[in-house]
Protein backbone atom coordinates (compact mmCIF):
# COMPACT_ATOMS: atom_id res chain seq x y z
CA UNK A 1 0.00 0.00 0.00
CA UNK A 2 1.22 3.39 -0.87
CA UNK A 3 1.07 5.77 2.00
CA UNK A 4 0.42 9.38 1.24
CA UNK A 5 0.54 12.37 3.46
CA UNK A 6 -2.78 14.12 3.59
CA UNK A 7 -3.24 17.63 4.83
CA UNK A 8 -6.67 18.63 5.95
CA UNK A 9 -7.89 21.15 3.42
CA UNK A 10 -7.77 24.60 4.88
CA UNK A 11 -7.52 28.23 4.00
CA UNK A 12 -3.84 28.49 4.84
CA UNK A 13 -2.31 27.57 1.44
CA UNK A 14 -4.58 30.05 -0.30
CA UNK A 15 -3.61 32.75 2.15
CA UNK A 16 0.05 32.00 1.58
CA UNK A 17 -0.11 32.35 -2.19
CA UNK A 18 -2.52 35.28 -2.06
CA UNK A 19 0.11 38.07 -1.96
CA UNK A 20 1.85 36.67 -5.01
CA UNK A 21 -1.40 36.30 -6.88
CA UNK A 22 -2.37 39.81 -5.91
CA UNK A 23 0.90 41.26 -7.11
CA UNK A 24 0.60 39.43 -10.40
CA UNK A 25 -2.96 40.64 -10.81
CA UNK A 26 -2.24 44.27 -10.02
CA UNK A 27 1.08 44.67 -11.77
CA UNK A 28 0.77 42.31 -14.67
CA UNK A 29 -2.65 40.96 -15.53
CA UNK A 30 -4.51 44.24 -15.01
CA UNK A 31 -2.17 46.48 -17.07
CA UNK A 32 -1.84 43.78 -19.72
CA UNK A 33 -5.58 43.50 -20.12
CA UNK A 34 -5.84 47.29 -20.10
CA UNK A 35 -3.32 47.42 -22.92
CA UNK A 36 -5.22 44.77 -24.80
CA UNK A 37 -8.46 46.71 -24.35
CA UNK A 38 -6.91 50.04 -25.27
CA UNK A 39 -5.29 48.60 -28.36
CA UNK A 40 -8.77 48.17 -29.78
CA UNK A 41 -9.91 51.72 -29.09
CA UNK A 42 -9.47 54.92 -31.02
CA UNK A 43 -9.69 58.23 -29.23
CA UNK A 44 -10.68 61.41 -30.99
CA UNK A 45 -8.25 64.29 -31.23
CA UNK A 46 -9.63 66.03 -28.15
CA UNK A 47 -9.79 62.96 -25.98
CA UNK A 48 -13.53 63.39 -25.53
CA UNK A 49 -14.82 60.16 -26.97
CA UNK A 50 -13.47 56.71 -27.72
CA UNK A 51 -14.60 54.21 -30.24
CA UNK A 52 -14.15 50.46 -30.27
CA UNK A 53 -12.54 49.49 -33.56
CA UNK A 54 -11.42 45.84 -33.20
CA UNK A 55 -8.05 45.39 -34.93
CA UNK A 56 -7.90 48.65 -36.80
CA UNK A 57 -4.94 49.92 -34.75
CA UNK A 58 -2.96 46.80 -35.60
CA UNK A 59 -3.90 47.13 -39.23
CA UNK A 60 -2.69 50.72 -39.21
CA UNK A 61 0.65 49.63 -37.69
CA UNK A 62 1.21 46.97 -40.30
CA UNK A 63 0.60 49.52 -43.01
CA UNK A 64 2.90 52.06 -41.45
CA UNK A 65 6.37 52.02 -43.06
CA UNK A 66 7.78 53.87 -40.05
CA UNK A 67 6.69 51.07 -37.76
CA UNK A 68 8.20 48.41 -39.98
CA UNK A 69 11.44 50.38 -40.16
CA UNK A 70 11.46 50.55 -36.36
CA UNK A 71 10.97 46.81 -36.28
CA UNK A 72 14.00 46.23 -38.48
CA UNK A 73 16.03 48.76 -36.52
CA UNK A 74 15.14 47.00 -33.28
CA UNK A 75 16.17 43.64 -34.67
CA UNK A 76 19.49 45.09 -35.76
CA UNK A 77 19.96 46.87 -32.45
CA UNK A 78 19.27 43.83 -30.30
CA UNK A 79 21.40 41.50 -32.42
CA UNK A 80 24.22 44.02 -32.29
CA UNK A 81 23.92 44.47 -28.54
CA UNK A 82 23.86 40.71 -28.00
CA UNK A 83 26.81 40.16 -30.33
CA UNK A 84 29.01 42.97 -28.97
CA UNK A 85 28.29 42.24 -25.37
CA UNK A 86 28.59 38.47 -25.65
CA UNK A 87 31.80 38.46 -27.64
CA UNK A 88 33.37 40.91 -25.26
CA UNK A 89 32.32 38.84 -22.24
CA UNK A 90 33.54 35.69 -23.94
CA UNK A 91 37.00 37.16 -24.39
CA UNK A 92 37.11 38.40 -20.80
CA UNK A 93 35.90 35.05 -19.46
CA UNK A 94 38.46 33.25 -21.60
CA UNK A 95 41.20 35.21 -19.90
CA UNK A 96 39.69 34.99 -16.42
CA UNK A 97 39.45 31.22 -16.80
CA UNK A 98 43.23 31.09 -17.14
CA UNK A 99 43.98 33.49 -14.33
CA UNK A 100 43.94 32.10 -10.84
CA UNK A 101 45.55 34.78 -8.73
CA UNK A 102 43.54 37.98 -8.38
CA UNK A 103 40.58 36.35 -10.06
CA UNK A 104 38.10 37.47 -7.39
CA UNK A 105 39.12 41.13 -7.65
CA UNK A 106 38.88 40.90 -11.43
CA UNK A 107 35.42 39.35 -11.19
CA UNK A 108 34.17 41.90 -8.67
CA UNK A 109 35.30 44.77 -10.87
CA UNK A 110 33.62 43.21 -13.86
CA UNK A 111 30.29 42.81 -12.11
CA UNK A 112 29.94 46.46 -11.17
CA UNK A 113 28.43 47.75 -14.42
CA UNK A 114 25.54 45.34 -13.95
CA UNK A 115 24.59 47.04 -10.69
CA UNK A 116 24.31 50.47 -12.29
CA UNK A 117 20.85 51.78 -13.22
CA UNK A 118 20.33 52.01 -17.00
CA UNK A 119 19.74 55.77 -16.93
CA UNK A 120 23.01 56.34 -15.06
CA UNK A 121 24.86 54.05 -17.41
CA UNK A 122 23.42 56.06 -20.26
CA UNK A 123 24.41 59.35 -18.62
CA UNK A 124 27.96 58.07 -18.22
CA UNK A 125 28.25 57.37 -21.91
CA UNK A 126 26.63 60.65 -22.81
CA UNK A 127 29.29 62.48 -20.80
CA UNK A 128 32.11 60.56 -22.35
CA UNK A 129 30.85 61.08 -25.88
CA UNK A 130 29.40 64.55 -25.57
CA UNK A 131 30.46 66.25 -28.82
CA UNK A 132 31.61 69.43 -27.07
CA UNK A 133 32.69 68.25 -23.62
CA UNK A 134 33.19 64.50 -23.76
CA UNK A 135 36.62 63.04 -23.29
CA UNK A 136 36.20 60.31 -25.88
CA UNK A 137 34.74 62.68 -28.41
CA UNK A 138 37.70 64.94 -27.78
CA UNK A 139 40.10 62.06 -28.26
CA UNK A 140 38.39 61.03 -31.48
CA UNK A 141 38.54 64.55 -32.80
CA UNK A 142 42.19 64.61 -31.94
CA UNK A 143 42.64 61.53 -34.11
CA UNK A 144 40.83 63.26 -36.90
CA UNK A 145 37.45 61.58 -36.51
CA UNK A 146 34.53 63.87 -36.05
CA UNK A 147 32.09 62.62 -33.46
CA UNK A 148 28.65 64.05 -33.18
CA UNK A 149 25.97 61.57 -32.34
CA UNK A 150 23.45 64.37 -32.07
CA UNK A 151 23.59 64.77 -35.81
CA UNK A 152 24.95 61.53 -37.13
CA UNK A 153 22.41 58.70 -36.87
CA UNK A 154 24.95 55.93 -37.38
CA UNK A 155 27.11 57.25 -34.55
CA UNK A 156 24.08 57.60 -32.33
CA UNK A 157 23.18 53.98 -32.98
CA UNK A 158 26.76 52.87 -32.29
CA UNK A 159 26.72 54.80 -29.03
CA UNK A 160 23.51 53.27 -27.69
CA UNK A 161 24.68 49.83 -28.76
CA UNK A 162 27.93 50.32 -26.86
CA UNK A 163 26.20 51.65 -23.78
CA UNK A 164 23.61 48.87 -23.77
CA UNK A 165 26.19 46.16 -24.44
CA UNK A 166 28.56 47.46 -21.78
CA UNK A 167 25.91 47.11 -19.10
CA UNK A 168 25.29 43.51 -20.02
CA UNK A 169 28.93 42.43 -20.19
CA UNK A 170 29.15 41.58 -16.49
CA UNK A 171 26.11 39.35 -16.57
CA UNK A 172 27.30 37.46 -19.64
CA UNK A 173 30.78 37.23 -18.21
CA UNK A 174 29.59 35.45 -15.08
CA UNK A 175 27.65 32.87 -17.08
CA UNK A 176 30.50 32.31 -19.50
CA UNK A 177 33.05 31.96 -16.75
CA UNK A 178 30.88 29.46 -14.87
CA UNK A 179 30.38 27.48 -18.07
CA UNK A 180 34.10 27.44 -18.82
CA UNK A 181 34.97 26.38 -15.33
CA UNK A 182 32.56 23.48 -15.52
CA UNK A 183 34.54 21.99 -18.41
CA UNK A 184 36.83 19.32 -16.92
CA UNK A 185 40.38 20.60 -16.90
CA UNK A 186 41.67 17.32 -18.22
CA UNK A 187 39.65 17.65 -21.44
CA UNK A 188 41.45 20.87 -22.26
CA UNK A 189 44.75 19.32 -21.23
CA UNK A 190 44.09 16.35 -23.49
CA UNK A 191 43.63 18.76 -26.36
CA UNK A 192 46.91 20.48 -25.46
CA UNK A 193 48.68 17.13 -25.57
CA UNK A 194 46.95 16.38 -28.87
CA UNK A 195 48.76 19.42 -30.21
CA UNK A 196 46.13 22.16 -30.13
CA UNK A 197 47.36 25.64 -29.26
CA UNK A 198 45.33 28.02 -27.07
CA UNK A 199 43.26 29.48 -29.93
CA UNK A 200 42.58 26.09 -31.45
CA UNK A 201 41.58 24.71 -28.06
CA UNK A 202 39.24 27.60 -27.58
CA UNK A 203 37.44 27.21 -30.90
CA UNK A 204 37.37 23.43 -31.13
CA UNK A 205 36.85 22.41 -27.50
CA UNK A 206 35.77 25.24 -25.21
CA UNK A 207 33.45 27.14 -27.52
CA UNK A 208 31.43 24.08 -28.63
CA UNK A 209 31.16 22.90 -25.03
CA UNK A 210 29.71 26.19 -23.82
CA UNK A 211 27.27 26.48 -26.72
CA UNK A 212 24.25 25.89 -24.44
CA UNK A 213 25.30 28.95 -22.46
CA UNK A 214 25.75 30.93 -25.66
CA UNK A 215 22.24 30.14 -26.74
CA UNK A 216 20.80 30.93 -23.34
CA UNK A 217 22.63 34.26 -23.25
CA UNK A 218 21.58 35.08 -26.79
CA UNK A 219 17.92 34.91 -25.80
CA UNK A 220 18.50 36.78 -22.55
CA UNK A 221 20.44 39.54 -24.31
CA UNK A 222 17.90 39.90 -27.09
CA UNK A 223 15.13 40.24 -24.54
CA UNK A 224 17.24 42.74 -22.64
CA UNK A 225 17.94 44.80 -25.75
CA UNK A 226 14.28 44.70 -26.76
CA UNK A 227 12.80 45.73 -23.46
CA UNK A 228 15.33 46.94 -20.92
CA UNK A 229 17.23 49.53 -22.89
CA UNK A 230 14.60 52.22 -22.69
CA UNK A 231 16.44 54.08 -19.92
CA UNK A 232 19.71 54.08 -21.83
CA UNK A 233 18.17 55.36 -25.04
CA UNK A 234 16.17 57.95 -23.21
CA UNK A 235 19.29 59.26 -21.50
CA UNK A 236 21.59 59.10 -24.50
CA UNK A 237 19.65 60.05 -27.63
CA UNK A 238 15.91 60.28 -26.89
CA UNK A 239 15.45 58.09 -29.92
CA UNK A 240 17.06 60.59 -32.27
CA UNK A 241 18.51 62.00 -34.37
CA UNK A 242 15.55 61.64 -36.75
CA UNK A 243 14.40 58.41 -35.12
CA UNK A 244 17.76 56.76 -35.84
CA UNK A 245 17.76 55.13 -32.41
CA UNK A 246 14.03 54.71 -31.89
CA UNK A 247 13.46 51.07 -31.12
CA UNK A 248 10.09 49.46 -30.46
CA UNK A 249 9.87 50.18 -26.73
CA UNK A 250 10.93 53.72 -27.31
CA UNK A 251 8.31 54.15 -29.99
CA UNK A 252 5.62 52.86 -27.63
CA UNK A 253 6.60 55.58 -25.20
CA UNK A 254 6.92 58.23 -27.87
CA UNK A 255 3.63 57.52 -29.60
CA UNK A 256 1.73 57.06 -26.37
CA UNK A 257 3.05 59.73 -24.05
CA UNK A 258 4.42 62.27 -26.46
CA UNK A 259 2.22 61.73 -29.50
CA UNK A 260 -0.79 60.79 -27.34
CA UNK A 261 -1.88 58.08 -29.76
CA UNK A 262 -2.94 55.77 -26.94
CA UNK A 263 -4.60 53.17 -29.13
CA UNK A 264 -1.64 52.80 -31.47
CA UNK A 265 0.79 52.74 -28.59
CA UNK A 266 -1.24 50.06 -26.81
CA UNK A 267 -1.31 47.98 -29.97
CA UNK A 268 2.47 48.21 -30.14
CA UNK A 269 2.85 47.08 -26.58
CA UNK A 270 0.57 44.13 -27.22
CA UNK A 271 2.85 43.12 -30.08
CA UNK A 272 5.87 43.49 -27.82
CA UNK A 273 4.15 41.37 -25.21
CA UNK A 274 3.55 38.64 -27.78
CA UNK A 275 7.21 38.83 -28.75
CA UNK A 276 8.52 38.42 -25.24
CA UNK A 277 6.20 35.49 -24.66
CA UNK A 278 7.47 33.88 -27.85
CA UNK A 279 11.10 34.36 -26.87
CA UNK A 280 10.50 32.94 -23.43
CA UNK A 281 8.82 29.89 -24.89
CA UNK A 282 11.73 29.30 -27.24
CA UNK A 283 14.14 29.58 -24.37
CA UNK A 284 12.24 27.22 -22.09
CA UNK A 285 11.76 24.62 -24.77
CA UNK A 286 15.43 24.76 -25.55
CA UNK A 287 16.60 24.55 -21.98
CA UNK A 288 14.27 21.65 -21.33
CA UNK A 289 15.70 19.78 -24.27
CA UNK A 290 19.23 20.54 -23.02
CA UNK A 291 21.72 20.82 -25.78
CA UNK A 292 22.86 18.05 -28.02
CA UNK A 293 26.55 17.70 -28.31
Amino acid sequence: MLKRVHFPSSLLPYLLVAPQVLITLIFFIWPASQALWQSMLIEDAFGLSTEFVWFENFQALMDDPLYLATFKRTAFFSLAVAFVSMSFSLILAGFADRVIRGATAYRTLLIWPYAIAPVLAGALWVFMFNPTLGIVAYGLEFLGYEWNHKVNGGQAMALVIMAAAWKQVAYNFLFYLAAMQSIPKSVVEAAAIDGAGPMKRFWTIIFPLISPTTFFLLVINMVYAFFDTFGIIHAVTQGGPANATTILVYKVFNDGFVGLDLGGSAAQSVILMALVIAMTVVQFRFIERKVEY
Binding site: S186, V187, E189, A190, I193, D194, A196
Partner: peptide, 26 residues
Protein backbone atom coordinates in the same frame (compact mmCIF):
# COMPACT_ATOMS: atom_id res chain seq x y z
CA UNK B 1 53.76 11.97 -25.86
CA UNK B 2 50.22 10.72 -25.41
CA UNK B 3 48.40 10.58 -22.13
CA UNK B 4 45.45 8.60 -20.82
CA UNK B 5 43.63 10.34 -17.99
CA UNK B 6 41.85 8.85 -15.02
CA UNK B 7 38.50 10.31 -16.15
CA UNK B 8 39.40 9.55 -19.81
CA UNK B 9 38.99 13.24 -20.76
CA UNK B 10 37.26 12.43 -24.04
CA UNK B 11 35.90 15.37 -26.01
CA UNK B 12 32.19 15.13 -25.15
CA UNK B 13 30.93 16.85 -28.29
CA UNK B 14 32.84 14.66 -30.72
CA UNK B 15 32.15 11.15 -31.91
CA UNK B 16 34.58 8.36 -31.09
CA UNK B 17 36.07 8.69 -34.55
CA UNK B 18 36.53 12.45 -34.19
CA UNK B 19 38.02 11.98 -30.75
CA UNK B 20 40.69 9.73 -32.13
CA UNK B 21 41.26 11.81 -35.25
CA UNK B 22 41.52 15.16 -33.45
CA UNK B 23 45.25 15.06 -32.75
CA UNK B 24 46.03 13.75 -36.23
CA UNK B 25 44.01 16.48 -37.92
CA UNK B 26 45.85 19.12 -35.95
Amino acid sequence: IAMVFQNYALYPHMSVRQNMAYGLKI
